[in-house]
Write a protein that binds this DNA or RNA. Structure first.
Length: 498
RNA sequence: GCCCCCAUCGUCUAGUGGUUAGGACAGCGGCCUUUCAAGCCGUCAACAGCGAUUCGAAUUCGCUUGGGGGCACCA
């Protein structure tokens, strides 16, 4: 690499950024950081009709969420701005005029209706759809006539009829397209805005982009771009097309595949470090075994050579697993911070958070290793925050037990727990915690034998009584966090259900 | 229809002429255990097919099949 590395992420604000787009951004960012280059964000807002309000914010928020910081672009500016194509219209216009002047482009007056009819006919006759070059050789008088009629033309590129364009993609290798398969594509629309093809080439050159890293869906428009670079006298950048992310049906990932917006994953409680790692691993690999790769390691080891050529299905199960790994790796404080917004969106949990943050901080370690997402934490911890438990009395009855033995077990537990707490409180004043996990176990374990129950039976009954669930964090720790009063109250409530 | 790309376990992948084809997720079985997790151990599972080159092909070449992408005054 002789030229300084300058790569760009060039989204169009026409919708919310899905995981595929953001992965492209990630690859670009990693490449820039790996080789000490610049990562540039350029907004390709050249389609007025499809522009979506808030889309740009969604895109930038997504990048920020993953900490894909850009060196030039919106907000930060840069030496090659403006970074909005809608503010660079003059550049495209003069490029188009230059091409027309030198005979590489021409004005086309065909109406959308004619073009549509033409395409319909081509499809009907099973011919490749494409512009029929109707205006390619218009005589000056004909042009004047059209102009007089007030028709605003588009500018089309005059693709050579013969020959071929080839390029070496850094991932796919040599790719060749015959010019006969290309049509005279539009450069400048009648509203004065450029098409992607023109704007992209003009800007990549103007912004000194060294490597164009984009999804494979662009590979077939690359020859058009190359033709433009040539006609404009620009030196083309390196081209790198990477495989796409597929839905479970192996088609290009789209809205109908469910959650595809990167922000949906954020809102569902996936950690940014998970998405960063996971996205990098779709299509790229470090070696034959490493899955969990911290951000810095990714930067240090990223390389184009290790991007594969095959499209990859977004594997939700593996994402869940990885998010669990990252959640477990969080310190208690980090976990608290990450989970807080999700807790706040729940009434009971939010209230607990406001009234007694310390209590919440005690609860969280009990579920941290059980959660696959932050959102799930709300469900996992719900019983800690609500007043009344809602479960069916039949759930209380332990394995191989009946209502009577269950009542007996609960009563015995109740008595023993009350006794224990009183004893400890009076005997040891402040030095011993009155209701901790160890003490609880010391009391409850012998009790099972006394009642001639298996520990699993007794603990199971108590678990349902205290949590309303048959699956929950460890019983003693749970009761200790819940506290003496709440625990005994729930046991009493269970008794009244039977 | 035309053009381009791709092809290893269900999924993500390692592999670049000689490997018992490795890892991860999921699944299954077990251990641990008060439940659920986590952890540990084990197990199931793949080179799309056919030719060619070669002493030898997952690895090279061709064809077939399959899949994907593109073919707008969208990006």
């Amino acid at each position: 690499m002789t030229k300084p590395v300058r790569v760009r992420f060039a989204p169009s604000p026409t919708g919310y950024p899905h995981v595929g787009n953001i992965r492209t951004a990630l690859f670009n960012w990693l490449f820039a950081r790996r080789y000490g280059g610049r990562f540039i964000v350029r907004i390709e807002d050249t389609d007025l009709a499809r522009k979506v309000e808030g889309a740009e914010k969604g895109i930038l928020d997504s990048l920020r969420w993953l900490s894909l910081d850009w060196d030039e672009g919106p907000d930060v500016g840069g030496d090659y701005g403006p970074y909005y194509q809608s503010q660079r219209l003059e550049l495209y216009k003069s490029a188009a005029e230059k091409l027309v002047a030198q005979g590489d482009a021409y004005y086309c007056y065909c109406s959308p209706e004619r073009l549509e009819a033409m395409r319909a006919e081509q499809v009907k006759r099973k011919q490749p759809p494409g512009y029929d070059r109707h205006c390619r050789e218009l005589a000056p008088e004909e042009r004047a006539q059209k102009e007089a009629e007030g028709i605003v033309p588009v500018v089309r590129f005059r693709v050579p009829l013969e020959g071929q364009t080839r390029f070496k993609d850094l991932i796919y290798g040599d790719v060749v397209f015959g010019h006969s398969t290309l049509d005279d594509f539009v450069l400048l629309k009648s509203d004065g805005y450029p098409t992607y093809h023109l704007a992209n080439v003009v800007d990549d050159h103007a912004m000194k982009i060294s490597h164009v890293i984009r999804a494979e869906e662009w590979i077939s428009s690359t020859p058009r771009h190359l033709l433009l670079y040539q006609a404009l006298g620009f030196e083309p950048p390196e081209f790198i097309h990477h495989p796409m992310i597929l839905g479970p049906d192996r088609a290009k990932l789209s809205k109908r595949h469910g959650a595809v917006s990167i922000l949906d994953y954020r809102d569902q409680g996936y950690l940014p470090q998970t998405m960063f790692n996971f996205l990098a691993l779709i299509g790229w690999s470090l070696d034959d075994r490493t899955e969990i790769i911290p951000r810095q390691a990714l930067v240090d080891n990223f390389s184009l050579e290790r991007i594969g050529k095959t499209g990859a299905i977004f594997n939700r199960e593996k994402l869940d697993w990885m998010n669990g790994v990252y959640i477990r790796s969080l310190t208690p404080d980090e976990f608290f911070d990450a989970v807080q917004p999700f807790l706040m969106s729940d009434i009971a949990a939010g209230e607990a958070l406001i009234e007694n943050e310390d209590y919440v901080r005690e609860v969280l370690p009990l579920v941290q290793e059980r959660a696959k997402t932050l959102l799930e934490v709300v469900e996992l911890t719900r019983f800690f925050f609500v007043d009344g438990l809602d479960y069916d009395a039949s759930q209380l009855i332990g394995k191989k037990m009946d209502a009577q033995s269950t009542v007996n077990a609960l009563k015995a537990a109740q008595e023993n727990l009350e006794k224990l707490v009183v004893l400890q409180e009076s005997a040891t004043s402040e030095t011993l915690p009155a209701f901790d996990a160890d003490s609880l176990e010391a009391v409850l374990r012998p009790l099972a034998a006394e009642l001639e129950l298996k520990t699993g039976q007794l603990f199971g009954v108590l678990r349902v009584a205290v949590t309303g669930q048959s699956a929950a964090p460890p019983l003693f720790a749970t009761m200790a966090v819940l506290g003496r009063e709440r625990s005994l109250k729930r046991i009493a409530a269970a008794l009244s259900k039977l």
